[in-house]
């Protein structure tokens, strides 16, 4: 049989059998043996893998001396070069969960070694690492250890062998928040009819698309003196210089563009739309119908506003993910803030 795969284990002072809360301040240490849950875990994978050692660190020490603790731990990982790292399970222990999550995430991101942990779904450590790390869903207390370990072992086996993980509920992990397109054995219309029938008969049903929840931002303070303010114009209407020099996508935009308009009175004939989501004829006749540079320049001339910011920012809104829209907003906002812009007009189609 091939060589066994190597697992490195991380636990806190309690599961590392050093002691309870009074020992939470101990510095990290490494033992070339299987301590606490690592022992049980080793038994579950012993046919094909082995736990090569256990890192133990006090929860308080980790959270208060993150840099030192992390350096020690990552050094051990580099030295021992495991195939995968397992942290926890942390159940609903907050500080332990944060440690398990941050360590696992750092190992994945910095060393490119896979990591698995286990937590109760409400543990604050879940949000720290769920995008990068597979987290087995456990009960809220250590009484769930006997159930948690086989689930984690099973996930570890699949990851090490490069097998694809199934659905979260099948494999027992907390969803990472990735919405993946897959094939169903029934077409969509059939599923809709069945869902409606279930509702009409007061039977249980499950939506395939839980409604999104949008967060809120506090309104920024108003501009005090418009006649001294610099105003920037931004659009998601896909208005670009003719020829689309930056090749901004007509739908599902992956980037934005900015163009110097300081010498222009209007967007006019040099611009057009590449937006794939609306009838382009009217915008192509006159792009200022989508991004009203003409009027802003007029108000600048009349002294109503101090200045129109020299760059005009643009992207395509249609089919563009909220994730990308947020990224664009962050990047554009940063530039505008740094340039000393006082207010922004954003037009959408």
């Amino acid at each position: 049989m091939a060589e066994k795969y190597k697992v490195l284990y991380y636990v806190n002072q309690f599961f590392g059998q050093i002691g309870g809360e009074d020992k939470a301040g101990i510095e990290p240490m490494y033992k070339e043996e299987t301590v606490g849950p690592a022992l049980g875990f080793n038994g579950l994978i012993s046919e094909e893998g082995e736990v090569i050692g256990t890192i133990i660190c006090g929860d308080n020490y980790f959270n208060e001396n993150k840099e030192e603790a992390m350096k020690f731990i990552l050094d051990i990982v580099k030295k021992t070069n495991p195939d995968i790292v397992v942290t926890g399970p942390a159940f609903n222990a907050g500080r332990y969960g944060m440690a398990c999550g941050e360590i696992a995430k750092a190992i994945v991101e910095q060393l490119n070694i896979p990591a698995v942990t286990g937590m109760y779904v409400e543990n604050p450590g879940v949000d720290v690492c769920k995008g990068q790390v597979i987290i087995a869903s456990t009960s809220d207390s250590a009484a769930g250890m006997r159930k948690a370990l086989p689930v984690m072992a099973n996930i570890v086996k699949k990851i090490v062998k490069g097998e694809e993980l199934g659905l979260p509920e099948e494999e027992g992990y907390i969803p990472q928040g990735k919405r993946l397109t897959v094939f169903s054995d029934k077409r969509g219309s059939q599923r809709a009819v069945e869902m409606l029938l279930a509702r009409l008969n007061d039977e249980p049903f499950e939506t395939e698309l839980p409604m999104p929840v949008f967060d809120k931002v506090n309104p920024a303070e108003a501009i005090k003196d418009l006649s001294k303010a610099t105003i920037a114009l931004v659009t998601s209407g896909g208005i670009v210089p003719k020829g689309n020099p930056d090749r901004i996508q007509s739908a599902s935009a992956q980037k934005w563009g900015k163009y110097d308009v300081s010498e222009k009175d209007a967007l006019g004939a040099d611009y057009c739309t590449i937006h794939g989501g609306y009838d382009p004829v009217y915008a192509n006749e006159l792009p200022d119908r989508v991004a009203p540079l003409d009027m802003l320049k007029q108000y600048e001339k009349d002294g109503v506003i101090g200045k129109v910011y020299e760059y005009f920012y643009t992207t395509t809104g249609t089919g563009t993910s909220v994730g990308n829209a947020m990224k664009f907003g962050k990047e554009i906002g940063k530039e505008l803030k740094e340039a000393g812009v006082d207010g922004v007009i954003l037009t959408s189609t």
């Binding site: 967060d215 920024a220 664009f328 907003g329 962050k330 922004v344 007009i345 954003l346 037009t347 959408s348």
Partner: peptide
């Protein structure tokens, strides 16, 4: 996009249909 720009403390007006 609007919200992310506003997070920098820049007042922003959304002109939308």
């Amino acid at each position: 996009m609007v919200k992310e720009i506003e997070r920098y403390g820049l007042p922003i007006v959304h002109m939308a249909t």
